[in-house]
Design a protein around this nucleic acid. Sequence first.
DNA 1: ATATAAGTTTAAGCATCCTTAAATTTATTA
DNA 2: TAATAAATTTAAGGATGCTTAAACTTATAT
Lengths: 218, 218
Amino acid sequence: MQNISTENYLSEIYKLEQSNVKVKTNVIAKKLEISNAAVTDMLKKLSNNGWILYERYKNIELTKNGKEYASQIVRRHRIWEIFLHQIVGLPWDKVHDEAHRLEHSASDELVDKLEEMLEFPEFDPHGDPIPGKDGSIPKIKDSIPLSKVRVGISGKVVRVNDFDNNFLNYLSQIGLKLGKKITVKEKLSFDNSLLIKINDKQINISNKLASNVFINLN
Amino acid sequence: MQNISTENYLSEIYKLEQSNVKVKTNVIAKKLEISNAAVTDMLKKLSNNGWILYERYKNIELTKNGKEYASQIVRRHRIWEIFLHQIVGLPWDKVHDEAHRLEHSASDELVDKLEEMLEFPEFDPHGDPIPGKDGSIPKIKDSIPLSKVRVGISGKVVRVNDFDNNFLNYLSQIGLKLGKKITVKEKLSFDNSLLIKINDKQINISNKLASNVFINLN
DNA sequence: ATATAAGTTTAAGCATCCTTAAATTTATTA
DNA sequence: TAATAAATTTAAGGATGCTTAAACTTATAT
């Protein structure tokens, strides 16, 4: 087990790689809310310790070891999220931050126990997959952003981006949860917002919101 | 919420004060397994921040604020311990270290939820009292070390010192838990060990062991 | 193709919390 | 009470991980 900072860098890089974003100093700095210079500093250390491949001014990539390690941090994080949501009853928009702190403080033994209590879940409360102990990732259902669903078409919510707590909180308010059926009724061209049907009600949502909700069409 | 280091110092000082030990640089250094010099360094900072009263070469004391803060760290620690033991099913000898890491990473909201799930317990798995939100401490049953119980006398285990994981593990092995009835059958003068009856079996325990188990005689 | 913008790295410095070694103070004991 | 032992503090220094400012490299746009 390394220190918290190392773990935070590695799991951010891992999540960026998973979402096919090119990993750059820039992007990491924004995610971790620190200066670019600090990131450059740390990248050298991570590289020296064999967690990442790094050449100045080039893209960043996890090594095999780095990927393995990072997957386990993400695993811990997402197991904590489910635990906090399902067992403890913490609301959707609170679990991420809480899990972010706890992920560095639990032994493997504890995480295994939690996983067992949860009956070996495959997805966290936001629909993100939980890496296995071997780093393998559960097959994700095909999905597209709600913002790209055509008018008249229906689908089920399979994932949301947990990029902002207020966003998640608002989703709760309008009853938008994983598994819910949504139909796109209309797209308003003047502000790109959408009229959707959910829970037998018709509501208007912004394009920004819709682009962070992912829909499986079958 | 301060940093982890500050919290560790304060909760150690708190626990020392609670057990009526004179708090000295020395003692803190041993508990935290760091050098005396490091402790001196930190004591100055804690004093500057108003958590402790400190004059060089003199005893150390928590301020009102310090005591209040420390009690909440201990509270978090002990609630985690029960949670890990009762809900998650972690063994006696594992909960302390795990809780020690988690105590710095949980929000008040989470700790409150855990406490609620546990139905507002008063004592942790080692029999230590859980400070309330206002810092108040549940009344502890009178007790004396098992090593001082007279031959022929019986009593119930109300607390054990969690000073060593192997010690706790061994207690589990011999079936010595909180609430168990113990009768002292004989004291062996040549090595100060004790013959006790517990769970209808007679076993021999060292004086060192016996002096870390606390008995209520009624 | 080159000027400009964007992104990245280097340099110098700071806070935190630790170390060992030396100096100082307090406690013990002959 | 004076010598010695024990405890504590000071001093100098190290690792980590951050900051801002300046220098440098790469990408973009005219």
